Simulated scan of single mutants.
Amino acid sequence: KAMESSDDAFNRGYEELIQTGKLETLVRMETSFFETSTTENLWGLLVNAGYLTISKVISYQDGLYVVKVPNQEVQQEFQKLTAHYLKVAGTDLFTMFSALKRQKKEDFKDKYQKVLLTLPSYHDLKDENSYHMMALGMCAWLCHDYKIISNREAGKGRCDIVLKARKENQISYILEFKYAKDSNTDLNELAKRAVEQIKDRKYDIELKGNVIYIGLAHYQKEVEIEWQEK
């Protein structure tokens, strides 16, 4: 309930936490969130509840800290929290990313489509960035096995999401999102263009080993996926 009533500042911080595994932020732990509903108290609630731990004190007087998810066991609970944050079923995210890691293209597409269809109507999927942010939140489920890179300069541009394998024998993934404003748009062709953008702009320049390029083309809650191996 606290996360449901959070503001944009908390949402931006939560997305940074998912992406980098840590966050520099103001934290208030001495006041109950339910007494004073602020972003600082919500971070304090997560610390006091054990979802996050303080890894660095920047200014004790100002309440400025670096927080992170403490360990793999808590990471599993953090995944469930993120599913709740996105208003999707944790089991759907688990099976979707399991399909991704096992290179089951059709299973991944089916589960991704199901997640889109079950998202509450107030999730404003109106442009490429909104789909990107939704998927970034989902990627909290993968941060143990992959380094999550989002909107960072790579090659000749900015890639949407890179899942860089932490182990040499794992496959890395690059996801590029496209959004059609017109229902007559050919989503299959748009998904192929997303993959061509990945290749043309060399978003994989820092990746070693096997890489899978995934182009995701959307119109509202419809999606087509182009999946190509490097």
Rank of each mutant, 00 (worst) to 15 (best):
K1S: 12
M3R: 11
E4A: 13
S5Q: 12
D7S: 12
D8W: 07
A9V: 14
A9Y: 12
R12N: 07
Y14Q: 01
Y14R: 03
Q19D: 05
T25R: 04
V27C: 04
M29S: 14
E30Y: 03
F33K: 02
F34K: 03
F34G: 09
F34E: 11
T39P: 01
T39S: 14
N41K: 04
W43M: 11
W43R: 07
G44R: 09
L45H: 09
G50V: 05
G50D: 15
Y51T: 11
Y51P: 03
L52A: 09
L52E: 07
S55I: 12
G63H: 11
L64F: 13
Y65P: 02
V69T: 15
V74Q: 12
V74T: 15
V74W: 04
Q75A: 15
E77H: 10
F78H: 11
Q79H: 06
K80E: 15
L81C: 09
T82C: 09
H84Y: 14
Y85C: 01
Y85Q: 08
A89C: 01
G90Y: 08
D92H: 03
M96K: 02
L100C: 14
K101E: 15
K104L: 09
E106Y: 06
F108S: 04
K109E: 15
Q113H: 08
K114G: 05
K114F: 11
V115P: 01
L119T: 14
L119H: 09
P120A: 15
P120N: 14
S121G: 06
E128W: 05
Y131H: 11
M134K: 02
M134C: 06
C139L: 06
W141P: 00
W141T: 13
H144W: 02
R152E: 15
R158V: 01
I161R: 03
V162K: 11
L163R: 06
N169G: 08
Q170K: 03
Y173V: 12
I174V: 11
I174K: 03
A180D: 12
K181C: 03
T185A: 10
N188K: 11
V195K: 00
V195F: 00
V195P: 00
Y203W: 05
Y203S: 00
Y203K: 00
D204N: 14
L207K: 03
G209D: 13
N210D: 15
G215W: 01
A217V: 09
K221M: 02
V223M: 05
I225W: 00
E226W: 02
E226K: 12
E229M: 10
K230N: 14
